[in-house]
Amino acid sequence: MSAATAPSSIRIKAIYEHLDCLLTGIDRLKKAGITGWTVMAPLPRHEIEEIIYEGQPSPVRWWTLTGAVTGLTTGLLLTSLTASQWPMILPGGKPVVALVPYAVVMFECTILGGALFTTLGAIVHCGLPGFFLDRAIQDPRVTDSSFGIVFTGAPVADQQRITEILTGAGAVEVTTGADTIYEVPNHA
């Protein structure tokens, strides 16, 4: 391959069998100032979350709040405006817009709005559906029992340094380029 067509980035994947090795790998990558990696895990471990996000909360909470406020407003408007459309005089001086009975509808709309927006937020921020994720990330060993760190576009110049960091942290396998794509064995 000529120098003009040589790729400037490369896939690198490390597989870990131990959580502490994975955490060491992430820590060393962060300290080396290397970015652009994705960590994969078979379960949510808050050690991983802490080391990556350092206590930064997920923005999904803003979706929940927006949904809940939207739901509450919808419940209030739906009940009040529809009653106001036919402002009949009710016996006993009862109000046309009665907030106490409407509170039930408003409450249900608040919860429904919050749940629907949370779902939307989770879909957006999790990057779902994830059918088009890089093939190096699509590794069935990770949903089983292993952990992984994947670079889908590491600078070729950093390849050796990254490989050394990942191997030094205790990776049981480090692959690059086309080797990062794991062929699924016939489990069934």
């Binding site: 994969m40 949510p44 991983i48 979350e49 749940a115 999790c126």
Partner: peptide, 27 residues
């Protein structure tokens, strides 16, 4: 839905799951 267990997915998933639980509890 093409779930792969990336750190990004777990981070937002767990936050969303907690909110679902908090919304479902009063229900």
């Amino acid at each position: 839905l093409g779930w792969r267990g990336t750190h990004r997915q777990w981070h937002h998933y767990m936050a969303a799951y907690g909110f679902f639980a908090a919304l479902a509890a009063p229900l």
